[in-house]
Design a protein around this nucleic acid. Structure first.
Lengths: 191, 191
DNA sequence: TGCCCGCGCCTAAATCTTTTAGGCAAGAGG
DNA sequence: CCTCTTGCCTAAAAGATTTAGGCGCGGGCA
């Protein structure tokens, strides 16, 4: 028999992410992963604590990848240019890697979340907003609005929620970004 | 033994929804449901086709409940009043019934989705937008934007994504609705 | 070179969920 | 009063999760 396959936590996480993209994040199973490595299931338990641990690692991987892409996209851009670039990072990532994107939504316990790349995401959105000259607490409100729109749009679109309706989602997406840009430039005062 | 417990598809769906709120939608299992009815697992399979069928029914139930609440909330309201009311229906429902809300996001196959209360939701959002005098295709863009913000905000908030940051989410929520109202009143033309 | 020891993968086993097939009996309708 | 539907049962197979413990190969020791 092939003596040693060379399992590591990192390889398992990577393979898990690939598997997620292929079959969906919640179909990611320790058994299926073992099958792919042609290895007995129990062998994986030396590298990941359990199924939940595996999923957490995939989630953290996805968050890192997303943050890396976002950082690249924001480099050298400002204003609406940066807004569009960041928005497209999320949308494109979700399309290219649906399983990983779903993983990025995996509910992490607070300590894990605090140590994750999630904080980088928040920082980048804040950096983006510097171009719109919003003071606190409006900046935080805007960060949350942008997060909501990006996540909400992408997840509804990927869930097929916008299908079979008339204007294609491409056009809506660009008009939504126009609208957000306009909104950020003239952020309304508290009512 | 208790001869007949009185299982029906409806009671199972209801109990499944309650279970979802208690333990989370993806912890809803045929076995757990059987346990709650103090009945053997196989007995449930005369009432629901399988696990996926059960979850679909819970999803449809949640969509109906949400649509009913939305219809109530919109009755007699217009403009920003209606906007805030509808937004709060989603947010409150998610807080009261997290499992059901998660169920409402369950990916339905196209035919099922078309026959679901999902279409009522779209119609109500359009009704709301009549107060803002948007013509097609802008109205559709706005429907999608509102759906994205509502869903995105609620799911991030429930996932703890907004926790431990300074301005409380209550304030952000009201400012986001202010912003959306302002945006809809001055919807920017195509760039 | 030879040995040994830890790590990587194994077997075994318990527990749980899903799903199908077939059976018995209680209660509704004639 | 009989029968037939149907509601819940037993039985069983298949797959997932997780733990406990074993054996051999390769790298580091002498």
């Amino acid at each position: 028999m092939a003596p040693r396959v060379g399992l590591t936590t990192e390889r398992l996480t990577q393979a898990g992410a690939t598997l997620a993209d292929e079959v969906g994040f919640d179909q990611v199973t320790v058994s299926e992963l073992a099958r792919r490595f042609d290895v007995k299931v129990a062998s994986l338990y030396s590298h990941v604590k359990n199924s939940h641990d595996l999923k957490t690692r995939i989630a953290l991987l996805a968050l890192e990848e997303l943050a890396d892409r976002a950082a690249d996209a924001l480099a050298g851009r400002a204003g609406k240019d940066a807004l569009v670039a960041l928005a497209n990072v999320y949308r494109d990532y979700a399309r290219e890697h649906p399983g990983r994107y779903a993983a990025a939504q995996f509910r992490l316990d607070p300590e894990t979340a605090a140590a994750s790349a999630g904080v980088r995401h928040a920082k980048m959105t804040r950096a983006l907003l510097r171009g719109y000259h919003l003071d606190e607490p409006d900046q935080t409100h805007a960060v949350r609005l942008l997060g909501s729109v990006f996540h909400g749009y992408v997840s509804i679109e990927m869930g097929g929620g916008f299908s079979h309706s008339a204007p294609d989602t491409e056009e809506t997406w660009s008009r939504v970004l126009d609208a957000l840009d306009a909104l950020l430039r003239t952020w309304p005062p508290a009512s």
